[in-house]
Write a protein that binds this DNA or RNA. Structure first.
Length: 293
DNA sequence: TTCTGCCCTTGGCA
DNA sequence: ATGCCAAGGGCAG
């Protein structure tokens, strides 16, 4: 079925910018369809001139369409957001260059685990970790010749235990994931409540979990808890901010940098950050290819 | 209280 | 081979 998208929408940039870690990308030789899992459904999707074409299982496509629109935040007034974040010249350039990079609305528990896994890790391996966890403890969902696994519940991972998670290759992050599973299972961490809570409170609650510091809390907040004012500061963003806005001087510490960024980029700085991160990463990749023998 | 240095798993790459 | 780095965070001092 086809969903018309009447707004700037870059499927590739949105799915491959390190927000969700549950998508298989179309290969160079492939057929341009992405395959992923959104909550309980396997989803196949590709861009079309008018929007996106998609198939789902087990939910029928007509029922799934609104959930897909929700996942891609098509309810955002994207032009208003772009107008706002264009206050910064460099972000404005990137918006021109990559129109339609969306902030996603990822399922909070899945998002939390993926970003605990992101600590001192690379994107490819985060994907592998998420996939391995799902295959081990999730449920199979199939469509045609494709089979994937849903992301396991907190109860599933609490029962699995730290050692089993460690065996799957999570390394030092295994106890963090296990403890987070217990916290959610026992009601000490209520992710639904965090959606309703103001940003600073939600971030504070997240940071009570071992393994979740300011950066990871901000990632969870912006990609799954409706906090577009969160601004995750990672190595790429810190590097970019330092080079562009604090040249030839010591880069302020992250807590100062965060306050500066939220003030400078405005209330939708989560979008600004995604543009800075994505633009910076693509530039790095292009440079790598340029320097390749 | 705040800052610094070091450690933590794993794997890919030079 | 061996070290460095990868969407960081905890901990000691």
């Amino acid at each position: 079925m086809e969903l018309t998208v009447d707004q700037p929408f870059d499927l590739t940039a949105s799915l491959e910018s390190g927000q969700s870690h549950r998508w298989d990308y179309p290969g160079e030789e492939g057929d341009s369809w992405y395959t992923g899992v959104i909550r309980g459904d396997l989803v196949r999707i590709r861009r079309t001139p008018l929007g996106v074409e998609f198939r789902t299982s087990p939910t029928v496509e007509s029922d799934f369409a609104p959930r897909l629109a929700n996942y891609f935040r098509l309810d955002d007034n994207i032009e208003a957001i772009y107008d706002d974040i264009r206050r910064d010249k460099r972000v404005a350039e990137m918006v021109e260059h990559y129109p339609g990079l969306r902030v996603l609305r990822v399922e909070p528990w899945e998002c939390l685990v993926s970003f605990i896994c992101s600590a001192n890790n690379n994107i490819q391996r985060i994907h592998n970790n998420m996939e391995t966890i799902s295959e081990a403890f999730g449920s199979a969902v199939s469509l045609d010749r494709y089979t994937r696994y849903t992301f396991p519940t907190p109860a599933d991972l609490a029962e699995a235990g730290e050692m089993e998670l460690r065996r799957l290759g999570l390394g030092f992050r295994a106890p963090y994931v296990h403890k987070a599973a217990l916290a959610v299972l026992e009601g000490r961490l209520d992710l639904d409540e965090l959606v309703r809570l103001p940003y600073p409170d939600a971030k504070g609650r997240l940071m009570e979990c071992p393994g979740i510091g300011p950066k990871i809390a901000d990632c969870i907040a912006v990609f799954s808890l409706e906090k577009l004012e969160a601004f995750p500061i990672d190595v790429w963003v810190r590097r970019a901010l330092g080079e562009w806005y604090f040249p030839n001087q010591k880069i302020p510490k992250d807590s100062v940098l965060l306050e500066w960024a939220q003030n400078h980029f405005g209330r939708y700085c989560g979008y600004s950050q995604q543009y800075l991160f994505h633009g910076r990463r693509l530039r790095g990749r292009a440079l790598d290819e340029t320097n390749a023998p």
